[in-house]
Amino acid sequence: MANDPEEKQPSASPKDEPSAVKSPAAAGEPASKPPAPPAAPAAKPPAPGGVPPAPAAKPPAAAVPPKPPAPPKEGPVALDNDLVKRYKQRFGDAIREAWIDRKQSILVVAREKLVEIATYSRDEEKFDWLSDLTAVDWPKREQRFDIVLNMYSMEKNERLRVKVYASADERVPSVQGVWATANWEEREVYDMFGVIFEGHPELKRILLPDEWQGYPLRKDYDILTQDTAWVRENLGIESGQ
């Protein structure tokens, strides 16, 4: 569903306003959140059977101009296997999208339900090992941050990626209570992206010094601005460049 249009869109969005490509697809689907406009089209899984073919057809046309040789294998394809069905059955609309990319399953879920879904994944689906928690910034998107949880199940020897979208001022529920390991990783995401995690016991910078200004991994972060400010304040000169 989200497949190519979705994935490509981020790349496209920086350049041009997301409208042409996605809006047709989106028309039918009133995505619960417009945050992920690209996702929105595919977001509604109700008609999963119908959608996949379309994306499959689309990608070569719209998405893949840069690299013609690889397209058939690579790139996202909508996913609707048992796992996704179970999730959907349990959480319904909270599962916004599901696709598979490079043989890796990806779920996009509603932000408010994250803790519930995480707990369910850990206890019921046995994705008990949170290998990574990070974020990606898509500044042109309304909800600019992907919060990405890479889970792994020792029992099933399977990986699952769960994403939520958040805008700069939206708070993301902390999964620190579900996996202890998320503590530092959420701190790092906060440090680098400025995403606030609701319910985190001590959300403070981890890699950067406490007095650091700005969030370096945001796409609009500008080291020059920061440097100039620092130079002005500490050295009393106009610019260090």
């Binding site: 994935e7 490509k8 981020p10 893949v64 840069p66 690579e74 790139g75 990319d101 490079r102 990574d132």
Partner: peptide, 9 residues
């Protein structure tokens, strides 16, 4: 190298 859009872990 121009990987097609997408992501991998």
């Amino acid at each position: 190298l121009k990987p097609p859009p997408g992501e991998v872990y």
